[in-house]
Amino acid sequence: MRLAVLDVGSNAAHLHVVDARPGGPPQSVFRLKAPTLLADSVDDDGALSDDAVDRLVSAVTETVDASRRHAVTDLIPLATATIRDATNVEEIRHRVREAAGIELRSLSGEDEARVTFLAVRRWLDRSAGPVLLLDIGGATAEIAAGTGELPDVAVSLPLGAARITRTMLPCHPARPRDVAAVHRHVLRSVRAHAARVDGYTHKGGFARGDGAARGGGTALDGYARPGGTARPIATSKTFKQLARVAGADGRLTLAGLRDWIPRLAAMRPEERAELPGVAASRSRQLLAGAIIAAAMMEALDITHVDVCPWALREGLLLRRITELSTP
C-alpha cells in the first residue's frame, strides 16, 4: 500500500510518501517540503496573518498535488500546534479544504507525544527498555516516558522554539537578561511536571546498578527499572540541529549546550545559519531551542540525550500501518 503523511507545521509542510506492508518498516518513496514560515506571523490575538494563511494554503496545495502524482492511496494530513492553536483555525481549515480538497486534522499535544514515542520505540526496539523522550516543536515541547510501545506519561507544554523566540527573545544578538529569563521560565515550567516522570530519572529512587557502582555513566545510567535502564532520547529538527552544532555522533550533552548558548546568543540569525546543519528558516529560533533543551535536561536531571531520526511523521505512518493490518 502507498501511504503518505503531510505534517503542516510552523516552518514547512512536510510530505513523506512511503510504500508499506504489514510486519515491515515503511520504505521511503518521495519527500517534499514546502515553506510555510508561520513562526513570526501570529497576531496579538493569536490568529495567523492573512499572508501566513496564504503561504500555508499554497504549501498544502503543492504537497497534496505531489501526493496525487505519486498515487498515494491514504494521506494522513496533520496540522501541528501553531495551526491547531490559532484563533482563526476554522478559517484556515476551510481555505485548505476549498483549495486542496483535504481536511486538516490535529492531535492534542499529549497525543503528539504518544505518537512520537511510538516512533522512537519502534526505532529502538522493545529490548531497549524504558525511554524518557524529549521533543521540541515550533509551538510546544513534549515529554513522554514509558516501558512499552505507548508511554505511561505524556506531557505537552507551550515551550516551542518559535513561540519562545517570538514572545521572549526580541533581540538577536540576544541580551543576557532575556536568555536568563527564558531559562528560568522553561526550568520552572518543566519542574512543575517533573514529578510525573520522576520514576524515569535518578530522582525517582531507582536502585543503583553496576554502571553507577563503577562510577561511570550519566545521570540516568545505572538506575535500574524493571526491564532495563531508562534511556534519554530526543527527537525533532531542533534537537537534530543542536546535535550537529553542539554535539557529536547523534548525541547532545547538557555541557555542550551550556557552552554553546552564550555563543549562539552573541550571533545574528544569518551567522547562525552558517553553522553546520542549520537552515536559514530556523536560525532565528535556534537559540531558543538550545535554551529550552538545556533547561528541560536540567529540570529532569539528564546529562545527555541520543537523537532519534524518527519522530511524529514516522509515528503517524507506523500507527496507520498497524491499523490497516489489524482485522
Rank of each mutant, 00 (worst) to 15 (best):
residue 2 R to A: 07
residue 6 L to Q: 00
residue 7 D to Y: 03
residue 9 G to N: 07
residue 14 H to W: 10
residue 14 H to I: 05
residue 16 H to C: 15
residue 17 V to F: 00
residue 18 V to S: 04
residue 20 A to Q: 00
residue 21 R to M: 01
residue 22 P to C: 13
residue 23 G to F: 06
residue 25 P to K: 11
residue 27 Q to L: 13
residue 31 R to K: 14
residue 31 R to W: 09
residue 33 K to Y: 12
residue 36 T to V: 01
residue 37 L to A: 14
residue 41 S to M: 09
residue 42 V to P: 00
residue 48 L to Q: 09
residue 50 D to P: 04
residue 50 D to E: 15
residue 53 V to C: 09
residue 53 V to E: 11
residue 58 S to Y: 13
residue 59 A to D: 04
residue 60 V to G: 10
residue 60 V to I: 12
residue 64 V to H: 02
residue 67 S to W: 00
residue 70 H to R: 10
residue 72 V to C: 11
residue 73 T to F: 05
residue 74 D to S: 14
residue 74 D to Q: 13
residue 76 I to E: 12
residue 76 I to Y: 01
residue 81 A to I: 00
residue 81 A to C: 07
residue 85 D to V: 02
residue 87 T to P: 02
residue 91 E to H: 15
residue 94 H to D: 15
residue 95 R to E: 09
residue 96 V to G: 01
residue 96 V to R: 07
residue 103 E to M: 09
residue 103 E to T: 15
residue 107 L to N: 10
residue 108 S to W: 11
residue 109 G to A: 10
residue 109 G to M: 10
residue 110 E to T: 15
residue 112 E to F: 06
residue 113 A to N: 08
residue 118 L to W: 06
residue 123 W to C: 08
residue 123 W to R: 03
residue 128 A to K: 11
residue 131 V to Y: 03
residue 131 V to C: 04
residue 131 V to A: 05
residue 133 L to C: 05
residue 135 D to V: 07
residue 137 G to L: 06
residue 137 G to D: 12
residue 137 G to V: 01
residue 139 A to R: 14
residue 141 A to Y: 11
residue 142 E to V: 05
residue 144 A to W: 05
residue 146 G to I: 06
residue 147 T to P: 00
residue 148 G to N: 13
residue 154 A to I: 11
residue 158 P to D: 05
residue 162 A to T: 11
residue 165 T to W: 03
residue 165 T to Y: 00
residue 167 T to W: 03
residue 170 P to H: 14
residue 171 C to L: 14
residue 172 H to D: 15
residue 175 R to G: 05
residue 176 P to G: 06
residue 176 P to D: 03
residue 176 P to V: 07
residue 178 D to P: 10
residue 181 A to N: 13
residue 183 H to V: 08
residue 185 H to I: 09
residue 186 V to Q: 02
residue 188 R to K: 15
residue 189 S to N: 05
residue 189 S to P: 04
residue 190 V to G: 01
residue 194 A to I: 04
residue 200 Y to Q: 12
residue 201 T to D: 05
residue 207 A to E: 13
residue 207 A to H: 13
residue 209 G to P: 03
residue 209 G to L: 11
residue 209 G to M: 02
residue 211 G to F: 15
residue 212 A to N: 06
residue 212 A to Y: 07
residue 217 G to C: 08
residue 218 T to S: 14
residue 219 A to V: 07
residue 222 G to V: 00
residue 227 G to D: 15
residue 229 T to Y: 10
residue 231 R to D: 08
residue 233 I to Y: 10
residue 233 I to G: 05
residue 236 S to Q: 06
residue 236 S to M: 08
residue 244 R to H: 14
residue 245 V to R: 06
residue 250 G to I: 00
residue 252 L to K: 00
residue 253 T to P: 00
residue 254 L to V: 07
residue 256 G to H: 02
residue 256 G to N: 01
residue 259 D to G: 10
residue 260 W to E: 04
residue 262 P to Y: 10
residue 266 A to E: 14
residue 269 P to N: 12
residue 270 E to V: 15
residue 270 E to L: 11
residue 272 R to Y: 07
residue 275 L to P: 00
residue 276 P to H: 04
residue 278 V to H: 03
residue 281 S to V: 15
residue 284 R to L: 05
residue 286 L to N: 01
residue 287 L to A: 03
residue 288 A to G: 05
residue 289 G to T: 12
residue 290 A to W: 07
residue 291 I to D: 02
residue 296 M to A: 04
residue 297 M to I: 03
residue 305 V to G: 01
residue 308 C to W: 11
residue 308 C to A: 14
residue 309 P to T: 02
residue 315 G to Q: 08
residue 316 L to M: 08
residue 316 L to K: 02
residue 320 R to P: 12
